[in-house]
Simulated assay, not measured.
Amino acid sequence: MKILVDADACPVKDITIKTAKMYSVPVYLVKSFSHYSSHEPVGVETIYVDTGADSVDYRIMQLAAKNDIIITQDYGLAALALGKGCIALHHKGFSYRLTTIDEMLNTRHANAKARRSGKRTKGPKPLTAKDKEKYQALLEEVLGQNRIL
């Protein structure tokens, strides 16, 4: 098992790395070259991909295997991960589920369509300390359950 992070805009990289170290699970940060940094976190592997639509998502799916954990806020990537048998987590502390991902994708599509026609849609709410706590608890739960398997 490994953790693959959609790292271009992930606000919980530090929590993920710290928690994964407690369970001795490797972490891979996948990001585009446009987010290059010479100060990468210690103890994780950073993988850079071309800057382009969905390049990070495609690379994550190439690296992913069944039961790996994917951290993303992208519903499309989450759907691909679930289809491959991965565990997909959102940084606000919820798991993506096969039973709800279609509805999430439909809502995303409807909102994108509305924006293209000039309507305004609500953006995501800011990440709170409570969201981060919820995420860390979920990640610890998932890692603890998979340690037993």
Rank of each mutant, 00 (worst) to 15 (best):
L29D: 08
D57C: 06
M61C: 02
G83F: 11
F33D: 15
G93Q: 08
A65S: 14
K66E: 04
L77W: 12
P26V: 02
G76N: 11
E45R: 15
E45L: 14
M61T: 06
H35A: 05
D50C: 06
V25K: 14
A64M: 01
G93H: 08
C86H: 12
T51I: 15
L63H: 13
T100I: 12
I69L: 07
A64T: 00
A78S: 11
R97P: 03
D57R: 11
E45N: 14
G83W: 09
Y75A: 06
A65Q: 14
S34G: 12
I60R: 13
D74S: 09
K66Y: 12
G76S: 10
L89M: 08
D50S: 01
A78H: 05
Q62D: 14
F94H: 10
D54S: 13
L63V: 12
K31V: 04
I70E: 01
I71Y: 00
V42P: 09
L89G: 03
Y36E: 14
P41R: 02
K31R: 12
D57K: 12
Q62N: 12
R97N: 11
H39L: 15
A78N: 06
L82S: 03
D57Q: 10
H91M: 03
P26A: 13
I70A: 01
P41D: 03
F94P: 07
A65I: 10
Y75R: 10
A64Y: 06
S38T: 07
V44R: 15
V49N: 08
A64H: 02
Y28R: 06
C86P: 09
L89D: 04
H90Y: 10
T72Q: 02
I69Y: 04
A88R: 00
Y75C: 06
Y48H: 04
D57T: 10
A88Y: 03
Q73V: 01
V49P: 04
T51R: 11
I71K: 01
S95P: 00
T72V: 03
E45P: 02
K84V: 01
I60A: 06
H39W: 05
G85P: 09
Y48F: 11
S34L: 04
Q73T: 01
D68G: 02
S95W: 02
A78L: 15
H39Y: 11
V49M: 07
G83C: 10
V49S: 05
V56G: 03
I71N: 08
Q73W: 00
D57W: 08
G85F: 08
I71T: 01
K92I: 07
R97M: 07
S32D: 15
S34C: 08
